[in-house]
Simulated assay, not measured.
Amino acid sequence: MYISMNGELMAPEEARLSPFEHGYMYGLGVFETLRVYKGYPFLYKDHLKRLSEGIKEIGIDTEITEQYFYEEIERVVKANEWLDAYVRFNVSAGEGPLGLPVESYTDPQTIIYTKPLQEKAMPVEKQAVTLTLRRNSPEGDIRLKSHHFLNNILGKKELKNRADVEGIFLTDEGHVAEGIVSNIFWVKNGELYTPTINTGILNGVTRQYILRLANELNIPVHEGYFSKEELQAADMAFITNSIQEIVPLSAVDDISYESPATSLIAELQAEYKRHRFYLSSYKELTGKKGNANDMEK
């Protein structure tokens, strides 16, 4: 197995980080997880945009070009001889003195991790459980995909590692927020609902894709502040992330949903499958549904 560290391919056991690495000491780092399909990194431009915004927000003075981002992911995946893979592109602040500096970091550490994925290993359906632990507020104005994952880990511990269940966070005010590693959507009377990013959730790349796709398919969308009871009153619901894609929920707590086999969820899943072999950004959606030939582009 190979990783990429600062542009150099190496075995994981060869990688070294300074004990003064501020990504380790203070959690100053951001990352993106994305999925590669037959060698193609789906929605890579959107992942790079969010990564670049996070880098700037935490004060790392560097630029990752689109060409480098794409080619380095491709290089690591090819080195491991994987066509379908999970990729984590991680950028941390780099080495610094003890204490909390206000100056920009100029020598960040970039690590690309990968592992093989098989579609048959992805969940077809999950249950959801409302967590008693509340979603913490973002560290800054918006939630970054950063190294600050304690809230997520404590939520996962509350579930006791149940792989078939996703935990759903509520905000301190009692509004539906997001899953431990996902965004959440639900359907009521043919219309789509999802929490607003003003609740403090991560603006997931797959979330942004779904919102644009729904608009192109003329599906009404409502972003807002919603109660747990409104979620439970839905006709059906699903969660999204860049690795598991679109996963229908069979139930939230003790409230069951109808089967999504011939539903709006199935329509979104079908479009996702058509796009994932060639779409570099959700902004490229044109309103025209894909076709079988698109899968080979």
Results as ranks from 00 to 15, higher is better:
82 W>I: 10
83 L>T: 13
84 D>E: 04
84 D>H: 13
87 V>E: 03
87 V>Q: 07
87 V>H: 00
88 R>D: 01
92 S>A: 05
92 S>K: 01
94 G>H: 08
100 L>W: 12
100 L>S: 13
105 Y>M: 03
108 P>H: 11
108 P>D: 07
110 T>I: 14
113 Y>P: 00
113 Y>H: 08
115 K>M: 12
118 Q>H: 14
118 Q>I: 01
119 E>H: 11
121 A>K: 14
123 P>C: 06
123 P>H: 08
123 P>M: 02
125 E>A: 12
127 Q>I: 03
131 L>V: 01
132 T>Q: 13
132 T>P: 04
134 R>C: 03
139 E>M: 10
141 D>L: 15
144 L>W: 05
144 L>E: 00
147 H>M: 13
148 H>D: 05
150 L>M: 12
151 N>C: 06
152 N>M: 13
153 I>L: 15
155 G>H: 07
155 G>L: 07
156 K>L: 13
159 L>G: 09
163 A>W: 09
163 A>N: 10
167 G>R: 06
167 G>T: 00
169 F>G: 00
170 L>P: 02
171 T>D: 02
174 G>S: 10
177 A>Q: 03
179 G>P: 04
182 S>T: 15
182 S>M: 03
182 S>K: 08
184 I>V: 13
187 V>S: 01
189 N>D: 15
190 G>F: 04
192 L>P: 05
192 L>C: 04
195 P>M: 00
197 I>W: 02
197 I>R: 12
198 N>G: 02
204 G>L: 04
204 G>Y: 00
205 V>D: 05
206 T>I: 08
207 R>Y: 02
207 R>G: 00
209 Y>V: 06
209 Y>K: 12
210 I>G: 01
215 N>E: 14
219 I>M: 04
221 V>W: 03
